[in-house]
Design a protein around this nucleic acid. Structure first.
Lengths: 239, 239
DNA sequence: GCAAAAGTGTTTTATATACACCCATGC
DNA sequence: GCATGGGTGTATATAAAACACTTTTGC
């Protein structure tokens, strides 16, 4: 005789960073940190970072905390993605996972933790993950690509100032296609979200590019459910 | 001495229907069914239909079940909206609410249940609701309006066949602005989602309009997290 | 000078909008 | 006929894409 099933609440986070890669068509690729499971089910398999939700912790806080614990980084973008609760996604108790997604910049010589139980993987070449985590990452990737087209989350992969070429590189790496430099420049300039810092980057053997910053606020949708990250409104058009 | 707080899981649903109204600029308005709370907290105040989540019920099933129980209707559209879990949204135990939103057609002489504890309200003139439910409805409204512009959820308010004027009326009522009939026709025709049934509606004292149907499937985003409602992909772009 | 990327200009294409006007029906 | 929406045509404005060309640096 088995005891009745119970609901358990968990928070997980899909963390994206953009890192240079050896060679290939585009110079940067999306990477995702995963943690190795240290218990059953799916012992030793890779999974999204996350943990049980305590009754005293805000959802978003739980997401950014696990993010800090696995990458050592603070997110420049953090947003709720979806809540997964299919009955068959876990054996034993039913686990409802509130999943967030985050963008971080790979700073300070990849300050990111890398030990035997935490590793970064190329987002388009993941191994078989625990639970339904492959599906979750795939959905997060779709959301990232969709949102990149109408918002300015690209900045979250970069520092405070950047050249248009760097910003374009981010878009190209995420969208997986080349963008016309001339048209990209115009569309960014006309968006009104860029500020010319006046500075330039010398040193390369070509005309020194300008450095830009982002304006601090973006027109937020009337009712962002969280009202915490005005910089990047929640969906929308979850298109 | 108080016992430690616990997490509780609930599912609620924001249900929209489009119903004719007495007079005014547009002939139809959005309505939302609410239920009266029969216990504390917020005793007697109006709230979104919903209930506790059992460990044996799928999230979406819980949403459509409460929808059936409060309206007597089956949803033509049902999708996860957002998960609300702020610590201060409930007194006592912390309640995490997975909120769905749904569109129904007001069929069969408003088969909808109307008793002392269930009532329909105009979506733009709600009373003060229990918990954070005003904010939730506002967010659902924003999502409905956003999604109306790039998907074909409008059909969910209508029967299987409809005239272009009816479809336009839906858009106008949701978007709260008049649309050019000529341009609306063209944009719908060029979308490739409409099928001319060949039938017409006679009886009115003007040229009889054609009846259209929707094509059955829409290009789904690569990774709809649920894969159940291919007709209406989840955000995203939750644009 | 030459290579390479920054940056500007121009043309084409597609799409959205505004609005004039004809068509088919009921009365 | 006339009123009423159904339906077509067309001109204009705005934005996306394609691509030629000039500018500024390092070597």
């Amino acid at each position: 005789m088995t005891s009745p099933r119970a609901n358990t609440l968990a928070v997980s986070t899909v963390i994206f960073a953009l890192r240079p890669r050896g060679a290939g068509p585009s110079a940067h690729v999306l990477w995702v940190p995963l943690v190795r499971r240290t218990r059953d089910p799916f012992l030793n398999q890779w999974a999204l970072p996350g943990g049980w939700l305590s009754a005293e912790e805000e959802l978003e806080h739980a997401a950014s905390r696990t993010l800090e614990e696995t990458t050592g980084l603070a997110p420049k973008f953090l947003e709720q993605l979806f809540t997964f609760g299919d009955l068959d996604r876990t054996p034993g108790d039913r686990v409802v996972s509130i999943v967030y997604w985050a963008l971080v910049q790979p700073t300070e010589a990849d300050r990111a933790i890398v030990d035997d139980n935490v590793r970064w993987f190329a987002a388009d070449a993941l191994p078989q993950l625990a639970f339904d985590h492959n599906r979750i990452v795939a959905y997060a990737l779709w959301r990232l690509r969709t949102k990149m087209e109408y918002s300015r989350i690209a900045q979250a992969f970069l520092g405070t100032s950047f050249t248009l070429a760097q910003l374009r590189e981010v878009h190209e790496a995420v969208l997986l296609r080349p963008l016309d430099p001339a048209n990209f420049r115009r569309s960014m300039e006309s968006s009104g979200t860029l500020i010319d810092t006046g500075e330039r980057v010398a040193g390369a053997r070509h005309r020194p590019p300008r450095l830009y910053r982002y304006t601090s606020t973006e027109p937020t949708p009337p009712t962002d459910p969280t009202n915490r990250h005005e910089e990047f409104a929640h969906d929308d058009r979850i298109r």
